[in-house]
């Protein structure tokens, strides 16, 4: 069996750390980079190295950034009295793209998962509490996922914030836009009914 040189083998092995990349795709990527796109490969290597060396968590919202305080947190046009709590950086992006929210964020980087030993400290809730108090936040929007762990996290947070007189809201759960009731899961539909909204003239 023919074997590649050690440098090539290393690269193939290294590429496999990417999600969805098996041995075959890793080999294809390696050969593509070497044969056709050496410039792109160099740029990739530099970008990777730079990002890995510099990107860390924002000191305020825990989102990824190479700055001390990320751009969202330091943006003066944003509503500084509102914080939206999400589980992952991808959730921040999703909310940002919806364009419906102009406040600040806090990224938990996970959710409470007691069975795995992930408690309030691991997801930075002590820091969050401190931040809410220090910055005089008025409203907290809990946008954790509507899973059992996400609900547990939301409940823990609401219990932490409500006694301090902070307004707390939970994002609505219900029928997706363009969806059909017939195909919506029963539990979701039950939520949609219990959280129905009164129409006004």
């Amino acid at each position: 069996m023919m074997k590649f040189s050690p440098a090539l083998m290393d690269l193939i092995e290294a590429l496999r750390c990417l999600p969805g990349v098996g041995p075959k795709s890793a080999q294809r990527m390696t050969l593509h980079l070497l044969e056709r796109d050496r410039e792109g490969a160099t740029a990739l290597a530099e970008a990777l190295q730079y990002a890995m060396a510099r990107v860390d968590h924002c000191q305020r919202c825990r989102n990824f950034t190479e700055l001390d305080i990320c751009e969202i947190c330091s943006d003066s046009r944003r509503d500084r009295h509102m914080i939206c709590v999400v589980e992952t950086p991808a959730d921040v992006l999703a909310v940002e793209q919806s364009g419906s929210y102009r406040g600040l964020y806090f990224v938990l980087m996970g959710h409470l998962s007691p069975i795995d030993g992930i408690g309030p400290v691991e997801i930075g809730l002590d820091k969050f509490q401190q931040r809410v108090v220090e910055e005089g936040i008025e409203e907290v929007i809990l946008a954790t996922n509507p899973t059992v762990e996400g609900e547990a996290t939301a409940y823990y947070l609401s219990d932490m914030l409500l006694p301090r007189g902070i307004k707390v809201s939970r994002i609505a759960h219900g029928v997706p836009l363009g969806g059909e009731l017939e195909y919506v899961d029963g539990s979701t539909l039950a939520h949609a009914f219990s959280g129905r909204r009164k129409l006004e003239q």
Binding site: P114, I115, A152, Y155, G186, A190
Partner: peptide, 18 residues
């Protein structure tokens, strides 16, 4: 597949379920 509606545990009861 679901065999019924999810049992909704609220607040503290969710922790008890866990």
């Amino acid at each position: 597949e679901p065999a019924g509606l999810a049992i909704t545990l609220r607040g503290e009861r969710l922790f008890s379920g866990l």
